[in-house]
């Protein structure tokens, strides 16, 4: 049973085709990487999946339901969690409050005007933070966290909606090599344990080859390759347009 099926997706901006007839699937518990040159249409693809952009054509089925063109918050409520390329946490709040705000929203309590928000879903928030290893920093203001920790808070916030699918846009951008691997290892283990499908974009090939079950390669808006890490690594077209000579990632891993 597949979780997400995109079919025939297309999008153009002012006559320039950014994504042309792209289709793929993600199964529960599967970690899939979407890679390709800068400007290949990865972000456009992603933004159609998360609702930021409405596709010009094609369908996006989540568990059988077509979600193409729905607004981001509706898609979020259907069980799609996401993290952003540039970390987006609520900087004026404590770590715990970030998760609480998400939990309260998903529970439909965001219009409560009187009861204090401080205790509402506090335990649930702490439990989520424990899952990403951030429970001991729960009371810190988000504005003061180290970058790698912010990424983990974002993951906890994304998990607050009990997602079936996680969309992660360059989740490890700006992180040190080993932090990258640690974050993706955490994500992959959560995904497999809880049967969450993960789709992520990434330029760091060490991360991609270490954690992706399957890789999709986009170039100029089209899907040019798809397959296991080994197959993609050795695909001559992918090497020509994207991977290069292989000096910039651990060729032998």
């Amino acid at each position: 049973m597949t979780l997400l099926v995109a079919h025939g997706l297309r999008k153009a901006f002012g006559g320039v085709e950014a994504v042309v007839d792209v289709g793929f699937a993600v199964a529960p518990g599967e970690v899939v990487a979407l890679i390709g040159p800068n400007g290949a249409g990865k972000s456009t693809c992603f933004n159609m999946l998360n609702g930021q952009l409405a596709p010009d054509g094609g369908t996006i089925r989540l568990g059988g339901e077509n979600i193409a063109g729905r607004p981001p918050r509706a898609i979020a409520r259907l069980g799609v969690g996401r993290t952003f390329q540039i970390t987006a946490t609520f900087a004026s709040m404590r770590v715990r409050e970030n998760v609480q705000a998400a939990l309260q929203s998903f529970a439909g309590k965001s219009y409560g005007l009187w009861r204090s928000a401080d205790t509402l879903y506090r335990d649930e928030a702490l439990a989520l933070l424990a899952r990403v290893g951030m429970e001991d920093q729960a009371e810190r203001p988000c504005g003061t966290l180290a970058y790698g920790d912010l990424k983990r808070v974002e993951l906890a916030v994304a998990l607050a909606g009990r997602p079936r699918l996680l969309l992660m846009d360059e989740p490890t951008a700006g992180m040190a090599p080993v932090e990258r691997l640690a974050l993706m290892a955490l994500t992959a283990s959560l995904a497999r344990r809880e049967q969450i499908g993960v789709l992520f974009t990434e330029h760091d090939m060490d991360t991609v080859f270490a954690h992706a079950d399957r890789i999709l390669v986009l170039d100029r808006g089209r899907l040019i390759a798809e397959g296991s890490p080994d197959a993609v690594r050795n695909d001559p077209t992918v090497r020509r347009v994207y991977l290069g000579a292989g000096t910039m990632y651990g060729e032998q891993a």
Binding site: G36, P37, N38, E170, A173, G174, H203, M205, V241, Y242, L243, G244, A245, G246, T247, M248, Y249
Partner: peptide, 10 residues
């Protein structure tokens, strides 16, 4: 090299 395709990094 941040955020660049491996080919561009080369």
């Amino acid at each position: 090299s941040e955020g660049l395709a491996p080919l561009v990094v080369e």
